[in-house]
Amino acid sequence: MSSASSEVFLRDGAGQLVKAELHDTILQRHLDDHKHQWKPLIAAQSEQHGHWNWEWKWSHFSPQLSYQFVALECNGQTQGLMIVNTIKRCRIQQQANKHLVYVEYLEAAPWNRRDIPNWVRYKGVGTVLLAAAIQLSIDEGNHGRIGLHSLPQADTFYRDKCGMTDLGPDASYSPKMPLRYFEMTETQAAAFIH
């Protein structure tokens, strides 16, 4: 399996832009980083911040052609991971039933989280991954339309920072954890990446 990477930038703890690599697949080293570097830190903190078993997800979703994978690397470490589904449909009235790219899972490395004091190494992981989702949507002919269910602590990022439309809690997605559903229109996507 071949993979391509794009040069992107993150902002380090000193506020400087630093080069990073965006991969259009998840490689074994990314799964290893998650297993050996992310998980111990996550376990050392609390269960309050959700986490994902990426190796299991990779094995489950990779045989299915409708899923695509993205990994973000900086300084030799995996900084963020994302799985998207390319055959979901829109919910916003003005684009109802049109295809979009749906972000199934998105996670930043634990050392990039704001809720863990003094750990933030890089800012912009979510921004870069969302830009990648928009690009995938454009590549699929969906004009940048994307959707996702946000973790509660990330609602302000998608609503205020990214300009996505908040369609409210979605009990049909997960009754035990009715996350808010956000969707981005073509216009919002164009505003985000320009």
Partner: peptide, 12 residues
């Protein structure tokens, strides 16, 4: 100076 958390999808 931005200060945002990210994350999407129901946790494991």
């Amino acid at each position: 100076d931005e200060d945002f958390e990210v994350g999407a999808g129901v946790p494991t």
